[in-house]
Amino acid sequence: MKHNKKENVPRASGDNGVIVLENITKRFGPNLVLDNVSLVIEKGKTTVVIGPSGCGKTVLVKHLIVLLRPNSGEVYFKDRRIDNLSENELNKVRTQYGFLFQGGALFDSLSVAENIIFPIRQHWEITDWREVEELVKAKLAMVGLDGYQNQFPANLSGGQRKRVALARAIALNPEVVLYDEPTTGLDPIRSDVINELILKLQRELAVTSVVVTHDMTSAYKVADRIIMLHKGRIVADGDADHIRNHPHPIVQQFIHGQVDADDLAVLRMSGKISQAQFLPRDFE
């Protein structure tokens, strides 16, 4: 990769990187969220990002598509530096991405079908509306929501919204799909359907995926590689077995869902939850 001037840049395997983050640092005011993070997202592989809530996973994936710009460091997409492009130039690059927002971010003034048509309409000349309808039907069927075309997001459950958002993210058949917690809020069976969908997209369309998740079952199932983020740094990086047997206590704690001994102490110390704390006058 011709941009890699510095030698210490981690490279997973030769020139397979579709998206490369180099020494990304991101601050929000005094809050340091990403601390010199370097990462190569490999083509056609599924990279899973895990880590405790608030550790900067969403911020990290937003940098991959430059929805957020780093304070320092560089972002490359297919060997082209993109973190310094103007919004208009970026918009061309972004059409090759699909991004599933953690909160879905559906347009609430548009129906489910219109939400999915939105990106299609923005970038393709639509000549045959029946074709588009078929496409919408197919994408909704992939997430198990065919028949919901005319519903509005406000009338859907949280999990259904998430799935519509996923259908919208893959509407343009992107090469790279970034999933921010695709299975959070779904029942176990639906979660597995989404996992299968991620695998299917990878198998059949050679999609490069980045999946942010808390759900270790899902992580082990879809991951070619798992990255754990903690306090703005990557503390573990490897395949599922590597993570399972990782010596770092923070990693073990996270994947087994164990509460920190200190946190537990705080909970036990605080004693009984007294009703007096919730007197109605607190709400006046």
Binding site: K62, I65, L67, E87, L90, N91, K92, V93, R94, T95, Y97, F99, F101, G103, A105, L106, F107, D108, F118, P119, Q122, H123, R168, L172
Partner: peptide, 12 residues
């Protein structure tokens, strides 16, 4: 609700 970011993410 990130709908504006969603528009950006879809290249518009």
């Amino acid at each position: 609700t990130e709908q504006i970011d969603a528009i950006r993410s879809m290249g518009t």
